[in-house]
Design a protein around this nucleic acid. Structure first.
Lengths: 156, 156
DNA sequence: TCCTGGACCGAACGATCGTTAGGGTGATGG
DNA sequence: CCATCACCCTAACGATCGTTCGGTCCAGGA
């Protein structure tokens, strides 16, 4: 397709970015929607990381916009997107908070830092993950590392 | 400064990118050079994460090139840079490997995954860290989370 | 069958980008 | 005091980018 032909599908480049950004928000939130809202928090965290990495692996371009390229949004759209993004991060964080409150995670857990480290790990994957690669195993390795840590042995 | 004036300092935009990329490699490797090569591995990991985050906080633009923008390098420079970057990651990984071999970290540790998660966490900071912000505390929070994990209590 | 509409092409537009050239300014040192 | 040099400016160039427009092609419906 020639560059000009694109404009029978979109209104402007900014519009296209906005559409892809919304598609990304939808995909990532839909991933979290598939995570049970009860049961062991540890398994819900695993499911959330799997869902996130799955979107990155299966919709790499959309994920790239949601993760990084959204910052070229302008005006009100930027604010609307940021609200969705903060909501996504908050949904993650509340997983860790709930785990701490229920005693399934350390009672001294800094859930903000925990969500940040977990999301950093899976976000960064958009820079190196091959499109279409298998991601569930990777997500599980991340989950085990984050939950059990690197030293000593954990309770599992 | 007007854009044209820049060219009394550089040869081309590509040259500038190359210079900043090398400056980044130097800064990050210098950070690791400041980490002791003996003593408790756990403290060396802490020092390495501190050093990395310090570069991100103090030289955000240089760090951004080292972490992400290097991919616009072309030809041989790209290969040279990638070798330096791989070496940096390998230096990190060898920390975790040594920790495992010495029994200071889990004997079943996947040191590749460990280095990936640790570096992802600190790399991602270039997207949100405020330039000049204090980073040592943050690095310590990351270190504790990664080493001790999120569930149960660890040996410290 | 013809007509319509959607998808794409090809060429062009103005704006921006990377770069060059020529010139001005101000500090430094012989 | 003048020459020099580093540093920056302005103006312009060609290339690329985002966008528009007229036209072609083709599938589906009347």
């Amino acid at each position: 397709m020639q560059k000009g032909s694109l404009y029978s599908h979109i209104e402007s480049k900014a519009d296209l970015l906005w559409e892809v950004a919304r598609e990304g928000a939808e995909a990532f939130h839909a991933g979290l929607d598939g995570v049970a809202d009860d049961g062991p928090v540890v398994e819900r965290i695993r499911a959330a990381l799997r869902a996130h990495l799955r979107v990155v692996g299966e919709q790499l371009d959309v994920a790239t916009v949601f993760i990084r390229e959204w910052r070229y949004l302008e005006g009100e759209r930027r604010e609307l997107f940021l609200a969705e993004r903060r909501r996504y991060e908050e949904r993650f964080r509340s997983l860790f908070r709930e785990g701490r409150e229920r005693g399934e995670l350390r009672t001294d857990l800094d859930d903000g830092a925990a969500a940040l480290v977990a999301l950093s790990s899976v976000n960064w994957a958009y820079t190196w993950l091959r499109p279409g690669a298998e991601t569930d195993n990777l997500a599980d390795r991340f989950t085990d590392l984050l939950l059990d840590g690197m030293r000593g042995y954990a309770s599992r």
